[in-house]
């Protein structure tokens, strides 16, 4: 087992809205090892971004958060605003689905990367000269194989392609060297060949700097090539957790089975895709029992009454009464 970096215990998150309060995440537990790559997979609204934001210390103002998140031993849920700001810039870094959200649209790339160097150095009580910063930034951009770094530095985010913007965001991570990188559907706006380049870069950050990476995606095939461990979310619950390879090769939870079978792998002539009937659960009108029971073909007597906890089976944990 790698050294423990993050330990999430009984994390519950509710949102207050004008239509009332509803709970999204429910008593989530997860440990993240130093240098580990974990994927979080689930359909839209399953709670993936909520988990990412809370872990990155970016809890929305209307969120009610319970439980604890120990990062290097300190519970970040109890941090003061000042400590949290410091935490966000140094230990954790989040990449968003729309990379333009990570950049300031009215400042050129040089300005933003120089600012990143200054933030890092200020934390280490160093004052960096502009010359040194420029050398470092250009070295980083060259490493990322951005053509003609000097000219890129003069440009504004909207003048770059999606793949280039995402590489600028990666450059920020390379400069800040956080211990944990959270990437929330970072490749949705990218083409497949550029996505593959991006995954390569993430792998390098992981192997060269030992950065832990949480990769959030709705695409289980993408999770397959971007992580060692896989966490499947359904309706705000972790429903399966284990080695990525094992889960994809032999999913156990009926929802994960449906998810894997719904991915086209063969041709229409070999077999039809299996699709999961029904629609995802609502948080506003929570179901009793297992959140998946109205869509589950293997439903048991008690499934609509009592919600199963995480059950350890063989190489993983599964939230399903079938494995009791």
């Amino acid at each position: 087992m790698k050294n423990l970096l993050v330990e999430i215990e009984n994390l519950s998150v509710s949102y207050r809205t004008i239509m009332g309060e509803y709970q999204v995440l429910d008593k989530l537990n997860l440990s993240i090892g130093a240098g580990e790559r974990i994927s979080v997979v689930g359909e839209s609204a399953s709670g993936k971004s909520t988990l990412g934001h809370i872990l990155a210390g970016m809890s929305p103002p209307n969120a009610k958060v319970e439980g604890s998140i120990k990062f290097d031993g300190d519970n970040i849920l109890q941090f003061t605003e000042k400590r949290l700001t410091n935490f966000r810039g140094s230990k954790v870094f989040m990449i968003f689905q729309n990379p333009l959200n990570s950049l300031n649209p009215v400042k050129n790339i040089w300005h933003q990367l120089f600012e990143t160097v200054r933030i890092r150095d200020a934390k280490n009580s160093i004052k960096s000269s502009e010359d040194d910063a420029r050398k470092e930034v250009i070295a980083v951009l060259t490493d990322l194989r951005l053509p003609d770094p000097e000219s890129i530095l003069k440009r504004y985010p909207h003048e770059l392609s999606g793949g280039q913007v995402q590489r600028i965001v990666i450059a920020m991570a390379l400069i800040l060297k956080p211990k944990l990188l959270i990437a929330d559907e970072p490749t949705t706006a990218l083409d497949v060949t550029i996505q593959a380049q991006f995954l390569d870069l993430l792998k390098k950050l992981n192997s060269d700097l030992g950065m832990s990476i949480i990769f959030i995606t709705h695409d289980i095939a993408l999770a397959n090539s971007s992580s060692e461990r896989l966490l499947v979310l359904y309706g705000g619950r972790v429903i399966e957790l284990g080695q990525t390879e094992n889960i994809i090769r032999r999913p156990m939870h009926p929802y994960t089975i449906g998810l894997v079978e719904s991915i086209p792998a063969g041709t229409k002539n070999s077999s039809r895709l299996v699709s999961i009937p029904g629609s995802p659960p609502s948080y506003k009108h929570p179901l009793s029992g297992c959140k998946f029971h109205p869509r589950c073909a293997k439903i048991l007597e008690k499934c609509d009454k009592i919600e199963p906890g995480m059950i350890s089976v063989e190489d993983r944990q599964v939230r399903c009464w079938l494995y009791e």
């Binding site: 053509p147 060949t193 996505q195 380049q197 995954l199 991915i263 792998a265």
Partner: peptide, 22 residues
């Protein structure tokens, strides 16, 4: 060839990418 190799699938964990941009 490169397009096919860059697509993640459930059957293989390895992908590879062409260099450069469109």
């Amino acid at each position: 060839q490169l397009l096919i190799k860059s697509v993640p699938t459930v059957s293989s964990r390895e992908i590879s990418a062409p260099t450069g941009d469109v």
